[in-house]
Each structure stands twice: as structure tokens, then as C-alpha cells.
């Protein structure tokens, strides 16, 4: 892979902005669902689907594709929105999210939608599945396999003991094709992670289990892209990217408030924005971010 030009990075930022707009629109239409984690992970999803992963929306089952396993299934809105913008299905279908008969189930259902590798929602079982997939791949293709398994996890989700059982096995098997990404946003349902169940020192925990650890800003496009390249170059160890993210990133009025974990625009906490204005305000704030990116592109073109 090659390094990305500033223009390409800015294009990715625009894409992430489109995805965030779709997250807001689909959640508002659904009237329920998870806003904070979905918005927070939009940059990671954008880099994976638009710059890093080997995949083809027209051939979702192609054999040599990389696999993306979403373990924290409640952030399905960011997965669906990214897939729609990547061309897996029409963007307007996002408005059927969580509705009766929709392919976009409240939590991902593998057999409902082409391109989903698994079903999730109940926390804690994605990493084990990713480990299983990686082991199976290495059995057949051996060490030289160039297929990568990206498993996305919530930080609160790491409370579940099953993760640590999988982390042990991956360390034992030295699964270098396994790249886990932890959404380190420091919130879960009942509050901030360090109050509910402290995770720190998280880096040291993974190191102790024989993982390669990359810790970074989960909103820096160039940094994320480079982190995935770095991860792919690691031998003899599974890799975890601890991506520090801001819950509800992109919508200033919702940011850093754990109460947005499971509320859609229109039903969130009211101290900053009244319920009936939440969708409108979110879209306005995302538009302002878009304006800044476009401004940056204009300046790039002048150079």
C-alpha cells in the first residue's frame, strides 16, 4: 500500500462526514438505537472500508476478502451506513433501520444482509469468532496468508470475560493476521468505564497476553491508515489498536456524554439540546464540520 495524499485524506474525512449524517438520519427515523458509539467509530470504519480492507461490495462473498467482525453489534448504524456508502446497498435503505421486515436489524443478523460476517449484539463473543476464523485461515493458507481479520470491540465490552479467554488463545497462537480495534471511548451504559469497571492499564493488559499494542487517536485519518499498515507488518503476534475516540464525535452538542450511548436523536438527554431539535442540530453541526473540510480542500487545490 502507498501513502495517502493530503487530498485523499480529506476525501476520507468527507466520507466519514457523509457516514455520520446517515447515522443521524437512520437513527432518527428508527426512533431507537445507539448514537454515541456509532458516531465515534465513523472514522475507523471509513478508513477500513475506503482505504484498508480488501473487499468488493459487488461480490460480498468473494473468497479472498478481508473479514470485518463487529463484536459490539449495538453500533450497527455505523456499519450499515459505511456499507451503504461503499455500495453494498442503496443509501436510502438506511431509513428502514430497526423496522419490521428490514434487512437492517437492530443488531446485525448475518443472514439478513450480504456483507455481514456475523450476528452480534450480545457483547463479548466477536473476538472469539475472529480468532476462530484466523486459526482456520492459517490452517489452510499457513503463515503466508495475506488475509486480515479485523475485529471491532467496545471498551465496556471488554468487561466480558470471554474476551480475555480469546485474547489468551490469540496470544498463544501468535495470530498475526488478527487485528482487533478497541473503541476506547471511556463510556458504557451506566457511566464512564473507569467508574463502572476500570480497564486501565489497558495497554499493559494486552502486552501481558503477548499482543502487539498500538495506541492512538481514533479520529486521525492519516494516523489510522498508518496504524493499520503498521499492524499488517507485525509478525508472530496478534495486534490490538486501542483507538481513543470521543463518544458522539462530530456532533458537538452530543459529545462526551455517556447518556447518548443508547439514545437516538430525538430521545437523548435534553440539557444541551431539546429533544425535538436534536436531529436538526446534529445535522447542522455535521454540516459545519463538512464546511471546514471543504475549505481545507480548496486550500490544497491552491497549493
Amino acid at each position: 500500500m502507498i501513502s495517502l495524499t493530503d487530498r485523499k485524506i480529506a476525501d476520507l474525512e468527507l466520507k466519514a462526514n457523509d457516514i455520520r449524517v446517515s447515522i443521524i438520519e437512520s437513527l432518527a427515523a428508527a426512533g431507537s438505537g445507539h448514537t454515541a458509539g456509532s458516531l465515534g467509530m465513523a472514522d475507523v470504519f471509513t478508513v477500513l472500508y475506503f482505504a484498508v480492507m480488501n473487499h468488493d461490495p459487488k461480490k460480498p462473498n468473494k473468497e479472498d476478502r478481508d473479514r470485518l467482525i463487529l463484536s459490539n453489534g449495538h453500533i450497527a448504524p455505523v456499519l450499515y451506513s459505511t456499507m451503504a456508502h461503499a455500495g453494498y446497498f442503496p443509501v436510502k435503505e438506511l431509513l428502514t433501520l430497526r423496522k419490521f421486515g428490514s434487512r437492517l436489524q437492530g443488531h446485525p443478523h448475518r443472514t439478513s444482509l450480504p456483507g455481514l460476517e456475523t450476528s452480534s449484539g450480545p457483547l463479548g463473543s466477536g473476538l472469539s469468532q475472529a480468532v476462530g476464523m484466523t486459526i482456520a485461515e492459517e490452517m489452510d493458507a499457513g503463515e503466508i496468508s495475506n488475509k486480515f481479520f479485523y475485529c471491532l470491540l467496545g471498551d465496556g465490552e471488554l468487561n466480558e470475560g470471554q474476551n480475555w479467554e480469546a485474547i489468551m488463545l490469540a496470544g498463544k497462537k501468535r495470530l498475526h493476521n488478527l487485528i482487533a480495534v478497541v473503541d476506547r471511548n471511556n463510556i458504557q451504559i451506566d457511566g464512564n468505564t473507569e467508574d463502572i469497571m476500570p480497564l486501565e492499564p489497558l495497554r499493559e493488559k494486552f502486552l501481558a497476553f503477548n499482543w502487539h499494542v498500538i495506541e492512538m487517536d481514533g479520529h486521525n485519518m492519516r494516523g489510522l491508515y498508518q496504524a493499520f499498515l503498521d499492524a499488517q507488518s507485525v509478525a508472530e503476534k496478534p495486534i490490538v489498536i486501542i483507538a481513543h475516540t470521543i463518544p458522539s464525535k462530530g456532533v458537538l452538542s452530543f459529545q462526551r456524554d455517556y447518556r447518548w450511548h443508547g439514545a437516538p436523536p430525538g430521545k437523548g438527554p435534553e440539557d444541551r439540546v431539546k429533544k425535538d431539535k436534536q436531529k436538526e442540530v446534529a445535522l447542522k453541526e455535521l454540516k459545519e464540520v463538512r464546511g471546514e473540510i471543504e475549505e481545507k480542500i480548496k486550500n490544497l487545490n491552491k497549493e
Binding site: 428508527a30 426512533g31 431507537s32 438505537g33 453489534g73 430497526r98 423496522k99 436489524q105 437492530g106 443488531h107 443478523h109 450476528s119 452480534s120 449484539g121 450480545p122
Partner: peptide, 8 residues
């Protein structure tokens, strides 16, 4: 449970 779907 409704919109959360089958997993819940």
C-alpha cells in the same frame, strides 16, 4: 423488546 431485534 421490539426494535433491538432477535439477539435481545
Amino acid at each position: 423488546v421490539g426494535p433491538d431485534g432477535a439477539t435481545h
